[in-house]
Amino acid sequence: MTATVPLQVVEDVTGPDLEAAERAAREFLAALGIMVDSEGTRETPARMARGYAELLTARPFQMTTFPNDEGYDELVLARDIPVRSVCQHHMLPFVGKAHVGYLPGTRILGLSKLARVVEHFACRPQVQERLTKQTADWLAEQLQPRGVGVVVEAEHTCMTLRGVQATGSRTVTSTMLGVLRDDAASRHEFLALTGVQR
């Protein structure tokens, strides 16, 4: 039997108040001495409000799995999943890519859902270390695979555009669970396939 089983529905409970956000953005810009009364900047507060709302609001999705009827027991890996989030310390974006893999147990996952899980945890004020761990922990809890691996590589504009201004630097974080943590050969295979271990 190949029926799908939804594990959990992830829902957006409350939506953003764009009018309040636009007013706050207008006051914020004014406090920094930026006038928003010219033709080119008049809509800037509204654009800021919509932009941050998009960055900080996850889309709902249903986590659907399928029986592992064929007994597939090798690594499943989605590489180069786009990541965009906002640093919780400076509210500046960080962008990069995630590599998410798992060793199936009794169920396998629709591949697009790996990207959905990353997006879900990225759409909030974040730190990269927590984003990496939340993604891995959630997949382990919901899918109950034999192992999970998540690697995130990202450029943080709070570090590249301000402060030390380390342009081009990237931060790499990883979380390994189950077999991918305990077995060196499996961990090596996962890291080699992500391209992180060169």
Rank of each mutant, 00 (worst) to 15 (best):
T2M: 11
G168N: 11
Y102R: 05
R187S: 09
V172Q: 10
G15W: 03
R107N: 13
L55R: 06
E70H: 12
G110E: 02
I34D: 14
V95R: 09
K133N: 14
G195C: 03
D69H: 11
L143G: 01
R23Q: 15
G163K: 11
L18K: 04
L92T: 10
A46L: 03
V196P: 02
T132C: 12
L191W: 01
P145D: 12
A49L: 03
Y72E: 07
P45E: 10
G168E: 08
E155L: 12
V148Q: 08
P93R: 06
L161C: 14
R162F: 07
A31S: 14
N68K: 12
A25R: 02
M176S: 11
G147A: 12
A122V: 06
Y102A: 12
V152Y: 11
L75T: 14
E74A: 15
A136D: 06
V196Y: 09
E155P: 12
R50K: 10
T57Q: 06
L18Q: 03
E27Y: 04
A49Y: 04
T160G: 08
S38M: 00
R116S: 00
K133A: 15
V172N: 09
D12W: 09
V86T: 11
A78K: 12
A184M: 08
K133L: 13
R79T: 15
L77N: 01
A24Q: 08
V86L: 04
A53D: 04
G168R: 13
A115D: 02
G71W: 04
N68V: 13
V179I: 14
R26C: 09
D183K: 01
D137T: 11
L131N: 06
R79S: 13
I108V: 15
M1G: 15
T167Q: 14
D80I: 05
A31I: 01
L143H: 02
L193P: 07
L29F: 10
D17Q: 06
L75Q: 09
G195V: 00
T14G: 06
E11K: 09
S85G: 05
G40A: 15
T171D: 11
A25L: 05
R47V: 06
C87R: 02
G96Y: 07
E155A: 13
F28K: 07
A46E: 08
L18M: 08
L143N: 01
Q165M: 14
R79G: 08
L131I: 04
H188R: 14
L29E: 09
T2K: 07
G96M: 03
Q62P: 00
E43Q: 10
A20Q: 12
T2P: 14
T64N: 10
V86A: 00
A192P: 01
L139Q: 06
L143D: 00
H120M: 07
S169M: 14
E39L: 13
